[in-house]
């Protein structure tokens, strides 16, 4: 019960946030919150395979970046009125770019996952990282789309009935999509598919012994997670109106992973809290010194060594909710 009340309060606060920011006269706040939600979106998609499937993908920023680049590239071709390869026309409609981003990221995840999931353990970590690097270098080399410098998206995508140039409306849109994604993920985790995935995480050999082949389940989860990250990237590109290869750098993959662990691995809201905590920590430490990473690094080490379960475990303890 307490958990439900806390959840309702959190949701109410999230919806009211742009109004609160305006009342407090913090015009930048809503924008920062939007970027936090995008990061939370990407992290919670990683959480599906990391927390529920036990797959340590160190290249999740690749799908985040592909989503962002899909929006950027479609915009670029829309602006120049020149179809991609003379076939696919560009567009600025979010109702097209968002599914396109998810589709592209999902396709990339299907190819990379199909190869990477042949391995496990450390090899899997290194291979997902290497594939992400490969895509990173590909986009660095694509001079037509800005190469190293990235590309600017002059105007945010259009959505019928909304005006995304207004940051508040963009924030609400991202919040709504994030909630939809979290709901979907909650249903996935509770479904038979989710149970099998959890079983594979706990003991792959036993799942095999009861007649379940892990590979298709893992691959399906990997692709769903890739699509989620693609959607998150598409929204992030819309918020920033800018895409560069940095969005798929290995540091970004690390950051997304840190968010999941900080918030609480394998929990529904953990990645959201983790994103808030990490951005808050960076903001706070950034206020103290420009060398904030020198403090953040050891904090991460301490969280890993001593803070099992992340923020969600802490909150559960405070609220007196027993796990499970």
């Amino acid at each position: 019960m307490r958990e439900k009340i806390a959840l309702a309060l959190l949701f109410a606060a999230a919806v009211a946030l742009p109004l609160i920011m305006r009342a407090l006269d913090l015009p930048g706040g809503t924008g920062v919150a939007t970027s936090i939600l995008c990061l939370a979106f990407a992290a919670s998609s990683l959480n599906l395979i990391l927390g529920h499937g036990g797959m340590i993908s160190f290249g999740h920023a690749a799908y985040y970046g592909i989503g962002a680049y899909t929006v950027g590239i479609l915009w670029e071709h829309f602006r120049q009125q020149e179809p991609i390869f003379g076939l696919i026309p560009g567009t600025d409609q979010l109702l097209i770019t968002l599914p396109a981003a998810m589709l592209t990221a999902g396709l990339a995840a299907a190819v990379i996952g199909a190869l990477s999931l042949r391995t496990s353990g450390v090899q899997f970590i290194m291979i997902t990282l290497a594939f992400a690097q490969m895509l990173f270098f590909l986009f660095v080399g694509l001079k037509a789309y800005g190469g190293d410098d990235g590309m600017t998206i002059r105007r945010r995508n259009a959505v019928p009935g909304l005006d995304l140039r207004d940051v508040d409306q963009l924030y609400w849109l991202v919040l709504g999509l994030l909630c939809a994604w979290l709901f979907l993920q909650w249903r996935i985790v509770g479904s038979r598919f989710g149970r099998v995935l959890e079983g594979i995480r706990q003991n792959e050999r036993r799942m095999r012994a009861i007649g379940i082949s892990p590979y298709p389940y893992k691959l399906a989860a990997f692709v769903i997670a890739g699509m989620g990250a693609g959607a998150a990237g598409a929204l992030m590109a819309n918020y920033m109106r800018f895409v560069s290869p940095d969005i798929m750098s290995w540091q970004k993959s690390g950051e997304i992973m840190v968010v999941v662990i900080l918030g609480g691995i394998g929990t529904l809201l953990g990645p959201v809290l983790g994103a808030i905590a990490l951005q808050g920590l960076e903001f706070f430490l950034g206020g103290i010194t420009e060398h904030w990473a020198i403090i953040l690094g050891p904090i991460l080490v301490l969280v890993v060594l001593f803070g099992r379960g992340g923020i969600m475990a802490l909150i559960r303890r405070l609220l007196g909710v027993r796990h499970g």
Binding site: I56, V258, H291, G297, I299, L300
Partner: peptide, 27 residues
């Protein structure tokens, strides 16, 4: 302290170390 931990913990803790060392060199 990481020998007995799983790979995920090792990756994250050593990721934290990278942040620390890179910034230390800048400093």
């Amino acid at each position: 302290r990481l020998y007995a931990r799983d790979h995920l913990d090792q990756v994250l803790a050593t990721f934290g170390l990278i942040l620390f060392f890179n910034q230390l060199m800048v400093l």
